[in-house]
Design a protein around this nucleic acid. Structure first.
Lengths: 219, 219
DNA sequence: TTTTTATCGATATAATTTTATCGATAAACA
DNA sequence: TGTTTATCGATAAAATTATATCGATAAAAA
């Protein structure tokens, strides 16, 4: 697969790049609001504390071409990134587990920009079933499989306690979910062809805490 | 700095390793509960879907030595990992921003194991000030700086809207916080010597969504 | 108009991380 | 007791990611 620049479009995008692009996107939105028309990797690097070379490489993946001495048009860069990330077409998702974290995700406004829409949530707790969070209904977990199938939902978000995560994943997969975003602190097993992303909050904390340990021991 | 094995203890631990160790730790706890006494990289790899070689390399960083044909003693491995990660001494932290995410973090039980204790939270909202979440008091943001100083807190968790994140960070740093875990969707600038870890939920989603796109386009 | 400057894009180098290979060893088994 | 086997730990190779270098170019300044 070759694009208009003669480059392979399907060449693997480095995951770190993929994780940084939304950060640029977010800052570019602010520049837009301020009415800034042009920006450069140098300028972005000062604001975001990344190396300019890294930013240049990252944005190059989206295919945009900048102008020497000027940089990139903010509007164009923003659109190019969002386009590249596929944030224009909406991804509908179901969330299972309406605890604190589930509620937080359902209420999170930032998903709008990146094309994720949680269209309903599911839980076992009768007190929660029937309520609404951020305008989205909380339904009985029993209806999960059926609704996935009927609505052809492809993305599932798991925010249940660890013990139930695999069970929920199984129901999801059985009914056609192709990508699972798992916030439960266990690894779930999925068959070939299904994508899982494990979000482990303790893992993140570990990185911070190790750095702190190290920094304190140096003093 | 050289340890008893003649290795440099301060040799940088790869961040990916640091992120995987808690995953092993979590699974090992389950093995313990089940009463399993020994485990091997092979066995762990089957359960967790990592390559056995990678697991072996990761755990080697903790300094543990296994036995050929047997592997590692579960109890010892668990303790070694927790020790290595410094999860035995408690890290006290303040959290600022008692929204859904802040509440979720305050209620998260998984932090106990990894030695993080959120001992109080702060907010601007008078309705929230004075309440308790998971046994922890929600205090007026005005008291933040003073309490950081008085209690010598080193870790700050930011779960406020993006616009206020830098301001909160500044107060934290001014009063002695050395590590900031930032969940706001903006990058915050900190002086030399202060550690920030940015947690960007959109970044994570992007990785999942790109993989899904790719996988769907292959069919 | 010419020179200087900031920035890009391409290419090259370095660092980090992952994966593979292989000899050594402890347990199981013939 | 000797042979086979699973696993470790060390070392090596490959892959990925980050950083540096450098010529080209568009704008600004002299």
């Amino acid at each position: 697969m070759v694009n208009s620049n003669g480059k392979f479009t399907d060449r693997a995008i480095p995951e770190p790049t993929l994780r940084r692009l939304p950060i640029y996107q977010n800052y570019l939105k602010k520049l837009m609001e301020k009415g800034v028309e042009f920006t450069s990797c140098t300028q972005l690097s000062e604001a975001l504390k990344f190396l300019p070379i890294q930013i240049r490489k990252d944005v190059a993946f989206t295919g945009i071409i900048g102008k020497p001495k000027v940089g990139y048009e903010v509007k164009e860069l923003l659109e190019t990134i969002e386009n590249f990330l596929g944030w224009n077409n909406t991804n509908e998702a179901f969330l299972v587990g309406v605890g604190n974290l589930g509620t937080a995700l359902m209420s999170y406004q930032g998903f709008k920009t990146c094309g994720l829409e949680i269209i309903a949530a599911f839980d076992v707790n009768p007190d929660k079933i029937g309520t609404e969070i951020n305008g989205k209904k909380v339904l009985d977990i029993g209806k999960l499989g059926n609704l996935i199938k009927r609505m052809k939902i492809l993305i599932g978000i798991i925010t249940v306690p660890g013990d139930f995560a695999q069970k929920v994943a199984d129901i999801m997969i059985e009914n056609g979910i192709k990508a699972i975003w798992n916030f439960a602190p266990v690894r779930i097993n999925v068959p070939e062809g299904v994508i899982v992303q494990h979000e482990n909050i303790a893992s993140s904390f570990t990185v911070l805490s190790k750095k702190l340990q190290k920094s304190l021991s140096r003093e």
